[in-house]
Design a protein around this nucleic acid. Sequence first.
DNA 1: GCAAAAGTGTTCAATGTACACCCATGC
DNA 2: GCATGGGTGTACATTGAACACTTTTGC
Lengths: 228, 228
Amino acid sequence: MRIYNETKTHEVTVDVVILTIHQNKLKVLLVKRVNEPFKGKWSIPGGFIRLSENIDDAALRVLKEKTTVSNIYLEQLYTFGDPLRYPNTRVITCAYFALLRAEDIKIDMKDAQGVADIQWHDIEKLPPLAFDHKEIIEYSLKRTRERLELCPIAFQLLPKKFTLTELQKSYELILKKTLDKRNFRKKMLSSNILVETNEFTKSVSKRPAALYSFDRITLDSKRGHFFS
Amino acid sequence: MRIYNETKTHEVTVDVVILTIHQNKLKVLLVKRVNEPFKGKWSIPGGFIRLSENIDDAALRVLKEKTTVSNIYLEQLYTFGDPLRYPNTRVITCAYFALLRAEDIKIDMKDAQGVADIQWHDIEKLPPLAFDHKEIIEYSLKRTRERLELCPIAFQLLPKKFTLTELQKSYELILKKTLDKRNFRKKMLSSNILVETNEFTKSVSKRPAALYSFDRITLDSKRGHFFS
DNA sequence: GCAAAAGTGTTCAATGTACACCCATGC
DNA sequence: GCATGGGTGTACATTGAACACTTTTGC
């Protein structure tokens, strides 16, 4: 690998929109800025791209600072570069988005005062955000919806074993519309990407639901179809 | 507008894949590099982003250096930033692609020796390219195909008035597959985006073909559907 | 009259959509 | 036995795909 002088300054960052489902809501991970500009405002996690680091790796590094994830859905979203997006400096940012399970966050989200500087925020109730991060989040939602129409990326948001109702709920949260239960199940079961685990939920006072998992082999073999 | 010192160096470029149909082939505009690195090799047109310029404007500027276009299909493609993509320096490039009519190129493409430093190249027969430009072109073709499945961007490649056969041919060149004539016409005519001009071609020894144009009003009103 | 491309409809398969009732469980 | 969410099938509409012959023109 070529060695750069890492002290040289440059003005390109990555920012990562990290989405999950938590408490039955679609949420985005936000951090409170500790430095100027926008000190104290919420923002999506980000950082400068190192000179010897490719952009995907920089995004992954930002993600790994906050989470325990390894094999995750992480996609380059768009590059934002309005000269006025960052005060006093020209900073171009290459935005990514990621889908993961809420449990995979490794940061302790409660500090002594009960107010953490890193928190899940309901997509529907975003606080004022630093820079153009509102626009970036909105675009990531649009892209996530487009992806979901083509491939079942929603499984990234769910535990390894899940019920069809949970899967449907995650689709509904992302697409922001209700889906027909029978049609949803028919489509999912006929796609051959679900495997029955022969396990069932043990809920109280209702019929147990069958637990499914995703068929990694079929998913991978269909990569050309689902993910290309 | 904020004023920057434009002499400050930075390392972010835009590169624009310019596609057209010319001599019944899908072609890309390439320029021969006059400076190191890759001096003498073909590359897609590009340039540094100025510090006070947003990225879309930089792409448009690159495009306008080579063409007479104004109202053109120009879309951000992807940002390429492998640390080794550019020799000796870290250069991140924000790639765009554009579709236009071959007539809209303003550069004289023949010099005294008959060998120009700017030329249309058949997509199927690309010369060796500088940097990662082969990858960038391939990705632009993939994206163009995806877009064409959703919206009729092919009209950007055609003259204002065109026959259905010409339109179909442009689809076939982009999608790299033959289409059924009747199905294609049915779909196009039922989409209400074509207007009959009541003019006809005057070909020799064959039946004249009806000329159509695109309905800008319908196109614009369907922007949410076709272009979002 | 013939070469060359323009123009035209129907059938079938697959996919998406709408819609309502019974089932299994814990209390 | 009842409240709660789990689970199931059919009918219809829309869309995409396959397929072959007649028409118009200039020469």
